[in-house]
Design a protein around this nucleic acid. Structure first.
Lengths: 244, 244
DNA sequence: CGGCCATTTGACACCTGTCAATGTCTGTGG
DNA sequence: CCACAGACATTGACAGGTGTCAAATGGCCG
């Protein structure tokens, strides 16, 4: 049905697996229970046990961990088409907080509905688990970035990864994308101070590589960025293990 | 059967879920296909698609990613009782390499055997997935450590976490544990240089907190270390979501 | 207009990396 | 038994990347 306009999640999964009409239908039905959250107010606090998962349909969210000394480390961002708290419902775990960066729209998915959908359409289950697995690969890549790349490469890599993810749901391309993040978000993501983030951004801009300004990221020299970041999108692109 | 001596994995899972005799039996049967690997020789190279998973029964392994510039980032360690490449077989993903740190003993688990075991004993499946989920939480905590802790706290946190994990399989306690890692391993894990690792270790030793020497870690002031690292073992201890 | 927030910039300190040399131990071969 | 090579650990000197502190700028909104 509605082959005209699909949800971002559908769009993303379809890029990797050809889903049947039945599967598409089940997938769309997971989006029924719509909810909204306002920017800035924590959706889930770390340690709180999750009741449901969400499929983000509009807006950006970040997941992070707070430390006793007040600093925070952003672990990941969720953009339209991403699951939010998937693991937390399958197994209560994943002890971090979620905060909408802008006002968001999300579909609430009850554990029971999800399991039922999985039972009905195993290929859909595999596709969703593939997506979850890809999220994990991103966390690992994030770890590598913080551990072994200097600030410039880290920033470049982050922007490239974000661009690729957004492109997958039609929200950007090799020329750039809209981005509601502040430099503080970038700092908490990359393990830098906000001041240094600003310096790095200036340097990347003055090198003619990329501009981050007024809520928009513009790639001026995509190839140059890729080289600086040693960006290899294999961990994002891999066509699923399931294309049977 | 053999209620006398269980495998480390059994021991670990039993700390969180009371497994029935049937479940214990299925679990032990997963250990039938024994294999050995020698220290230093890469078991799996990143990008290579995995045929099977392993349950480590003796020895230490590390999983890491190599970068184009030759540096490496260790993502995680596997100690006895840990799964190795579990995700890689369920879904081909998790693009990193594995290397035994010492000679190891492992049980090879074919995907089919694993799925069959899961089908037979759902509670066992949940327990194993819980363990996998805990591994993920450790990666996240690792990320936080590299991003937001200074070298001293990072080292302290790492040693404490390792100690807790080992204690769970009877290989250490609050006084210390045997540890085959070199300072280079620590450096590649914590995102530091080997030289700086040495400085940090010296400082921790001279502060009377912990000694790392001759393959053994000795906690001299456990409470002090916990405070320095802001170590909160909640993400390790959480009793499963499944104790029904 | 007057706060408030994000951004920007400069000065300075310090944590950490790099380079280079030395020490220790182990295993190997003469 | 000794000489030697190789791996790991240790140390010092120095440079540089990043954090911190402080202040100025600019946009947005009540």
């Amino acid at each position: 049905m509605t082959s005209i306009e699909h949800s971002p999640l559908t769009r993303k999964l379809s890029a990797f697996v050809a889903l049947s009409d039945v599967e598409l239908d089940v997938l769309e039905r997971l989006h029924q229970r719509r909810r909204s959250f306002v920017a800035g107010r924590e959706m889930v606090h770390q340690g709180q046990s999750a009741r449901a998962a969400y499929i983000l349909s509009a807006g950006w969210v970040c997941s992070y961990k707070l430390q006793a000394d007040g600093t925070r480390q952003i672990v990941d961002f969720q953009i339209p088409g991403d699951f939010l708290g998937l693991r937390s419902v399958l197994l209560r775990t994943s002890d971090h907080s979620f905060e909408p960066i802008v006002d968001i729209e999300a579909a609430e998915v009850l554990t029971s509905d999800l399991l039922e959908a999985f039972a009905q359409t195993p290929r859909l289950a595999t596709a969703i688990l593939w997506a979850a697995s890809r999220d994990e690969a991103m966390v690992v890549e994030h770890l590598v970035g913080i551990g072994r790349r200097d600030a410039d490469a880290r920033m470049a890599h982050f922007l490239l990864e974000l661009g690729s993810r957004l492109a997958l749901v039609g929200m950007g391309g090799k020329d750039g994308f809209d981005c509601p993040l502040t430099q503080y978000h970038l700092a908490d993501t990359l393990g830098l101070s906000a001041v240094h983030v600003n310096r790095v951004l200036r340097q990347l801009r003055e090198s003619g590589l990329v501009t981050f300004r007024d809520g928009h990221v513009t790639f001026h020299d995509y190839g140059g960025l890729v080289e600086l970041a040693e960006f290899d999108s294999a961990y994002l692109d891999q066509t699923g293990p399931l294309l049977k």
